[in-house]
């Protein structure tokens, strides 16, 4: 029983709040008492060396992994925990199922369902989880496939699509659930250089025209600098430094940030 964290957050709280979140794999601590707030409509980029815990931030928020300590709040209420008596206990699967649809995730390896067409990939969850009729789900899916420029490929199976095309379908599939926050986990890392641009363009339009709340783990420093409202530099499971892209890339204060930026910018 956890009584140090509140059962609900006050009105006007951020859309997502990590409060003292710790995640360990055996003896290894990947997130170390992390505090992180994400405001409505904010675009936050997470950068940092590998092993710094940046992907884990997304995975615990998506409830793919259980956290060891702390609480994650979404939309003012606890996500990883549920209220019980005077405090909080770990959420049951039923409690998670009722809330998980608020979060959408796009994976590095796309993870499309290979035995379904692009359209079927986008229709399944809205029908099964949100209870939409087939007509409504298909209309929604078609609009989104158009939005990501994949309308003409709706009947193709993923094996017939390029990596960039698959990733755009994966974005449409996540959007079809109308999540309140989108998590993008290194979505261009598995792509050939020539198709990275088409995926970045989709993310650009989601940010500028649709004002989605997004958390993006990325190695694309130029893109993070261009698009983010805020950039967080992770080091050893903590936020070593965060700020506007201008501050963090233009005038980093932390030694680790400087070293990291030197290393990646020199490599480019």
């Amino acid at each position: 029983m956890d009584t140090t964290h509140p059962q609900v957050l006050p009105e006007g709280s951020p859309l997502v709040r990590f409060s003292g979140v710790t995640k360990c794999y055996g003896p290894l601590t990947v997130l170390d008492k992390l505090d992180l707030d994400i405001a409505q409509n904010e675009m936050v980029s997470i950068i940092g060396p590998s092993g710094s815990g940046k992907t884990t931030v997304l995975r615990v928020l998506m409830t793919l992994e259980k956290i060891n300590d702390g609480v994650i709040y979404v939309d003012g209420e606890p996500l990883t925990h549920m209220p019980k008596a005077g405090g909080l206990t770990f959420a049951t699967e039923k409690y998670l199922h009722e809330r998980r649809s608020k979060i959408g995730m796009v994976f590095q390896q796309f993870n499309l369902f290979p035995h379904m067409t692009a359209l079927q990939n986008c229709v399944e969850a809205p029908m099964q989880v949100l209870g939409l009729s087939r007509e409504d789900a298909e209309e929604r899916a078609l609009n989104l496939l158009e939005l990501v420029g994949m309308g003409d490929k709706k009947d193709q199976h993923p094996t017939r699509l390029s990596g960039g095309q698959q990733q755009r379908v994966a974005i449409a599939r996540a959007l079809a659930m109308r999540p309140k926050v989108m998590l993008l986990d290194e979505v261009t890392s598995a792509l050939d250089p020539e198709v990275i641009g088409e995926v970045l363009n989709v993310i650009r339009s989601l940010n500028s025209e649709h004002n989605l709340t997004m958390i993006m783990v990325t190695h694309q420093m130029g893109f993070a600098r261009e698009i983010s409202d805020r950039v967080c530099f992770f080091y050893e499971g903590k936020i070593a430094e965060q700020g506007s892209p201008e501050q963090l890339f233009g005038d980093p204060q932390n030694e680790r940030t400087k070293q990291f930026l030197h290393a990646v910018l020199d490599a480019n």
Partner: peptide
């Protein structure tokens, strides 16, 4: 990863 995609879609 197919399991994870399903969980992310709340199946």
């Amino acid at each position: 990863s197919q399991w994870e995609a399903c969980r992310a879609l709340n199946f």
